[in-house]
């Protein structure tokens, strides 16, 4: 079991994936022009993790901004989590949004409507 991480940049988020603890966090901004390339390693790690997941997998999504190009990749990540949830690991996705950021809350609700995994909407102060 290992911890995998990607350092954030002004256009891409910080990703931390502690496979031993079953904890994944995506934090910061996700506005790259080419998001497929950026999210590919994470999707691959999840694929690997799906073979031997922890009993519970906690996921924190704390994004300040994300573009529509990232939104499809985030959906791909959630689809992997959906499969992991189905195969016995209890997945919870914590979707963080800042107070008053209705657009971010709505974005979380869009995913919640598509993905069959428990979501928790978590409001944080600005």
């Amino acid at each position: 079991m290992e911890t995998i991480s990607i350092e954030g940049t002004p256009k891409t988020p910080t990703i931390t994936f502690d496979t031993g603890k079953g904890f994944l966090e995506i934090k910061g901004r996700s506005i790259p022009e080419n998001s497929i390339e950026f999210y590919k390693p994470l999707v691959d790690w999840l694929e690997k993790y799906a073979g031997k997941p922890q009993a519970a997998t906690n996921v924190n999504i704390q994004l300040e901004y994300f573009n529509t190009s990232s939104s499809k990749c985030i959906l791909d990540v959630f689809k992997k989590l959906e499969a992991i949830n189905k195969n016995g690991s209890a997945v919870v996705i914590n979707w963080f949004y800042e107070e008053d950021d209705e657009d971010m809350l709505e974005a979380g609700e869009d995913y919640q409507a598509i993905i069959n995994v428990p979501f928790k909407m978590v409001q944080v102060a600005e």
Binding site: E33, T68, S69, K72, L75, D110
Partner: peptide, 26 residues
Amino acid sequence: LKEYYKAVLNNGEMSMKGGGGLGMID
């Protein structure tokens, strides 16, 4: 628009660049 966005997000093909036609809807 919300429903259309979700439909394109979920079913739409992703272009190589990752645009996928969501920008204008967004």
